[in-house]
Simulated assay, not measured.
Amino acid sequence: MTALFGGYALASAVATLIARLLPVDRADATAWGMNLSFLAFAGVALWCFHEPRVARLMLLVWGGTAALVLALYLLGMRP
């Protein structure tokens, strides 16, 4: 469940943060964010099945997602 839902949540947060922080047009930043989110999701999903300690896995995946969402909240809307 963490590999599927946590990986998706983390990849979504990564895509949104990349789209928010890149200093290019919104469409280009969104495209870059979405392209890189596929790599993030694949990497997290593979790592989830490789990691032997479930507690550390869940802490890093869900904690990383929470940290990225908090960073997005603190950045606010893009002008």
Results as ranks from 00 to 15, higher is better:
residue 23 P to N: 04
residue 21 L to W: 13
residue 24 V to G: 00
residue 28 D to V: 08
residue 75 L to T: 10
residue 2 T to R: 12
residue 9 A to C: 09
residue 55 A to G: 09
residue 43 G to H: 07
residue 45 A to C: 08
residue 17 L to M: 11
residue 76 G to P: 08
residue 5 F to L: 11
residue 17 L to P: 07
residue 39 L to S: 12
residue 37 S to F: 11
residue 13 A to L: 02
residue 4 L to C: 12
residue 35 N to H: 12
residue 28 D to M: 07
residue 27 A to E: 15
residue 22 L to Y: 11
residue 19 A to Y: 01
residue 12 S to Q: 10
residue 5 F to H: 08
residue 19 A to L: 01
residue 24 V to L: 09
residue 71 A to I: 15
residue 78 R to M: 07
residue 59 L to S: 15
residue 13 A to D: 03
residue 59 L to M: 15
residue 44 V to F: 03
residue 60 L to K: 01
residue 8 Y to G: 08
residue 4 L to G: 06
residue 69 V to W: 10
residue 42 A to E: 00
residue 71 A to W: 13
residue 17 L to E: 08
residue 79 P to F: 05
residue 41 F to M: 05
residue 29 A to E: 06
residue 64 G to W: 03
residue 73 Y to E: 05
residue 37 S to W: 12
residue 3 A to W: 10
residue 77 M to F: 10
residue 67 A to F: 11
residue 13 A to I: 01
residue 51 E to S: 11
residue 74 L to G: 08
residue 60 L to R: 02
residue 48 C to R: 04
residue 32 W to G: 00
residue 40 A to C: 06
residue 55 A to L: 14
residue 47 W to P: 03
residue 7 G to V: 05
residue 52 P to M: 06
residue 39 L to N: 03
residue 26 R to G: 10
residue 3 A to P: 14
residue 25 D to W: 12
residue 26 R to V: 08
residue 50 H to Y: 15
residue 36 L to A: 10
residue 17 L to T: 04
residue 11 A to F: 02
residue 5 F to T: 10
residue 42 A to L: 10
residue 63 G to C: 08
residue 66 A to K: 07
residue 69 V to G: 02
residue 65 T to W: 06
residue 54 V to Y: 11
residue 68 L to E: 00
residue 16 T to G: 01
residue 7 G to I: 04
residue 30 T to R: 08
residue 44 V to I: 14
residue 27 A to C: 09
residue 14 V to I: 15
residue 9 A to I: 06
residue 29 A to P: 01
residue 65 T to R: 02
residue 78 R to C: 05
residue 66 A to M: 10
residue 1 M to C: 02
residue 20 R to A: 09
residue 54 V to L: 13
